[in-house]
Design a protein around this nucleic acid. Structure first.
Lengths: 139, 139
DNA sequence: GATAGGGGTTCCACTTGATGGAAGGTCAAT
DNA sequence: ATTGACCTTCCATCAAGTGGAACCCCTATC
């Protein structure tokens, strides 16, 4: 199968598939004309990668998950551990964003958004210099 | 003021400050010995940048916010608009992560995490190939 | 005067995960 | 023969820094 078909079937752009070959995630064969020739196995792997990436796993995680996927001697504990670490990363990211959101929403709410220059958003961004200065004086 | 002091006061690493100069966010003077010489104004700007970045604003947003900050003729509407777009980005990101989290948490929950190879996580990542295949047959 | 340390400087490479584009080869059909 | 849709490689670019090498500056101490 040529890269175009694989792209369609796996849902990944051809460019991405080439990139994945480049970094050693898939190793398609080559036809006589130099075109990449993908086996079903390669297509499966790419679809797997697409899913794993959609869950936010890093490329390195994907590499490891793929290895486990193809290793009959794996234990589900190994897989679970990778997933748990990722779950934790997601949780921390969500917490971080939620905090940002709260602060920003508060500021947006306080801002008139009119023709005047007075703006609590800018005021807040600027004011914190002093907080930092105070912190440093204290510390 | 030298870069080390500024780093401490603004809370930004010296490397980052140099980088910010590089991309034109701050323009410190130079002492006779070639050292960067930061005025209070520069330190304020850097602290401002630190805060804005902490709220997730992109460097380009920061550039614009800084411009507005220094422009007496600004309107709060301009500022608010940038902030609202950012708020929206955060919301979309949170939604995306929340969905990832739900899927992943479900899978982690279903996985025994023991010595056996059977793993719902891998099964899920692999199974979706077929969904895609079906989707493609249908479409 | 030499030297050690703790600043500072520049510049280049690397990170993550692709993506865009140029220049050119291949293939099927007209 | 030539169009158009494929495919190939390679190089550059994005965000937002970070790490490190090689080298300069300044002060204090021996």
């Amino acid at each position: 199968m040529n890269i175009g078909d694989v792209a369609e079937r796996s849902g990944l752009p051809a460019k991405t598939i080439r990139y994945y070959e480049d970094i050693g995630l898939v190793k398609p064969l080559r036809s006589a004309n130099g075109y990449r020739s993908f086996r079903d196995r390669d297509v499966h792997k790419l679809a797997f990668l697409g899913r794993a990436r959609a869950l936010g796993f890093s490329i390195e995680d994907c590499r490891n998950l793929l290895k486990l996927y193809e290793d009959d001697g794996r234990t589900s504990a190994e897989v679970k551990q990778i997933a748990e670490v990722q779950l934790d990363r997601i949780d921390r990211k969500i917490a971080e964003l939620t905090e940002m959101r709260a602060t920003l929403a508060h500021l947006v709410d306080a801002c008139a958004g009119d023709h005047r220059p007075d703006c609590p958003i800018l005021a807040d961004l600027a004011a914190k210099e002093e907080e930092i200065a105070l912190l440093n004086e204290a510390g």
